[in-house]
Each structure stands twice: as C-alpha cells, then as structure tokens.
C-alpha cells in the first residue's frame, strides 16, 4: 500500500508507452539523443526539461490533494518567486536569491495552510484568493515588465547541466527523492492519508491533522516557488503575466492522471510525476507533429480522456481485470 510504485501504476506506464510510441510515429527522430556542449540534446530531454515545472508542482499538489484539499495558487506562487528571483539576481548571490524566492513560497504556503487548517476555509476558495492576488503581487514586483537578468548562477539553474542532464531535471529528481524519503520513509505519508481519509477520526486517534494540513500547503508553496525560479531561470527573465499561468490545472491533472483521488486518503508521488511526464510527452508530441495549432487543445483533451478512461475500472477491460483480481485475492 505504501510502496513507492504500487501495482496501480500499470495503467499510467501503459499510457506513457503508448504516447511515446505515437510521438515516435509523428516524429521519427523522437528518440535521437546527442551531446551538445556537454549536455544531452533531443526530444526526450525536452520532455523531461519542459515537464519539470509541472512535475515539481505535482509533488506538492499530490500531498495537498491527499488531505482532501486543493491548491489553486501554485501558478501565482511561481510568478511571485520568479519575480523575486529575477529582481534580486543581478545584485545578490545565488544563496540569497534562492532563500528569498523559496522563502516567499513558504510564506504563501503558510498563508494557504492557515486559511484552510486554522480558519477552516474550503481549500478551493482559500487558495483562490492567492491565485488571484498572487499574480497581482508578482506584477507589483516586476512593475508589469519582463525583468531580465544575467547572473550566471541563476541562469545555470535553468540552462546548465549535471552529468549531461539539464539542471532542472536533476532538481526535480532530487525533490522527488527528498519528498519520497520524508513522507514514505516515516509515518508522515500515512498520517497525511489518514487526515484526508477521515480528518475527524484521525484527530480522535491522535493525529495532529491541523499540523498535517498546514505542512502540506507549506510544502506545496515551496515546490511551486522552486518551479517558479526554474521557469524564470529558463528564459532568463521573470514574466509575471505569463509565468505559471494555468499550470495549477496541469498540476491537478498530473495528480489525477497519477491515479490519486481528489477525495483524498491515498497518494503516490511517483505516479503524480509520471502524470506530469505523460502531459508533457503529449505536449511535445503535439509541437513536433506539425498539426495546425488550432488542434492543440482538442488533441490534449482527447488524450487526457483516453488516459483517464484507461484507469476507469469499469470501462477498461485490462484495469478492470486487475481490479477484480486484486479484490479476489484477500
């Protein structure tokens, strides 16, 4: 149940393989890889690199959703942290820049967590406040302009490479391992799931549900801030109007594709990240295909529906049999 990759991941892996195969058909050079200036270069690397922001967002989002919450503000938090990072980049060192922008994400998360856990607001409404206000805050920081910077340290975070892998991908991998180690290496994950499953019962059983809820929103804010710094580093500038725009929806979609129920109670980090990769594999495939852009959203919707149908135990023979087998076992 608490394994990092449970058997229920089969549908997602199958979906990823199918989409990769389709990408190979529309773009024959899809799996080509070569080294360019010490960095791997190819469409597969693009998928990983471009998928990083949503993967990072989904790492925080999946924990929030596990507590039966939701965080609509992650896109706005990306804009805020990116704006802070870009404004400070050329005048301060990288540690200060990172501390300030990730700190802003932490504060945003605390705010959301406070509204939900302490004031008892509905998560969708509580985080909607920051979703709207956050972009305004980011625009205030950048004064509505695209703030550019040339600080080599921050640029490296978006465009550098570690052992041939783009730095953002390495960061996302590191965050997945860190988050996994913390929540699955301890009872924390179980307590988060208990909070989402039945907050009242868990409270009575001695789980500090309030602290659980507060901490998942904080973590979600930090992940979003990191995604924002990477997005700004990628284009060497902070675009408060567009950074992270609508990405909260992609993050929620990634979590759902990863099989986590919006009703909370259980989650899988690896599958959420896999969900983010499925979305990006599809996006990159659409860009490579050469279809007119009017089809982008339509193709995306059809594929998402297919992936979700694949997971539906009632509609998919394969998943259905798996579910029945699992039910028959005990």
């Amino acid at each position: 149940m608490t394994a990092l990759l449970p058997r229920r991941g089969l549908a997602q892996i199958l979906a990823l393989i199918v989409i990769l195969a389709v990408d190979r058909v529309v773009s024959p050079q899809f799996f080509d890889l070569r080294l360019q200036d010490g960095r791997l270069f190819g469409s597969l690397i693009d998928v990983l690199n471009r998928g990083t922001p949503v993967a990072l967002l989904s790492l925080g989002m999946v924990l929030v959703i596990a507590t039966r919450g939701i965080d609509l503000s992650v896109g706005a938090v990306m804009a805020i942290s990116g704006a802070i990072a870009a404004s400070l980049a050329d005048s301060h060192g990288l540690p200060v820049v990172l501390a300030a922008s990730l700190g802003a994400g932490l504060v945003c998360g605390l705010w959301n967590g406070f509204l939900v856990a302490v004031l008892g607001m509905q998560p969708i409404v509580a985080t909607l406040i920051l979703m709207v206000a956050g972009r305004g805050i980011a625009q205030l920081i950048t004064e509505g302009r695209i703030v550019t910077f040339a600080s080599p340290g921050l640029v490296w975070l978006g465009n550098g490479s570690i052992l041939g892998l783009p730095v953002p991908v390495a960061i996302a991998l590191g965050m997945l391992i860190l988050t996994g180690a913390v929540v699955r290496g301890s009872a924390l994950g179980l307590l988060i799931e208990a909070t989402g499953g039945n907050a009242r019962a868990s409270e009575l059983a001695g789980v500090g549900t309030r602290a659980m809820i507060l901490s998942v929103y904080v973590w979600c804010g930090v992940c979003a801030a990191l995604a924002g710094v990477i997005a700004a580093a990628d284009i060497m500038g902070a675009d408060a109007n567009n950074a992270g725009l609508w990405l909260e929806l992609d993050a929620i979609l990634a979590v759902v594709i990863g099989g986590t129920s919006l009703f909370g109670g259980r989650f899988s980090l690896v599958l959420a990240v896999l969900g983010a990769l499925i979305i990006q594999t599809m996006n990159t495939g659409i860009l490579l295909s050469g279809y007119p852009p009017e089809f982008n959203l339509l193709v995306k919707a059809v594929v998402v529906m297919a992936v979700l149908l694949l997971q539906s135990p009632k509609l998919s023979g394969f998943a259905g049999i798996m579910a029945r087998l699992r039910r028959a076992k005990p």
């Binding site: 469409s43 693009d46 471009r50 284009i235 675009d239 567009n242 990159t284 860009l287 490579l288």
Partner: peptide, 12 residues
C-alpha cells in the same frame, strides 16, 4: 510568451 517561444522553437 518567451517561455512558449523557446519551447516551440526547441521542437522545431
């Protein structure tokens, strides 16, 4: 946007 311009150009 810059970000999407970069992403699309990568795929081109």
């Amino acid at each position: 946007t810059r970000a999407k311009g970069k992403e699309v150009m990568e795929s081109f």
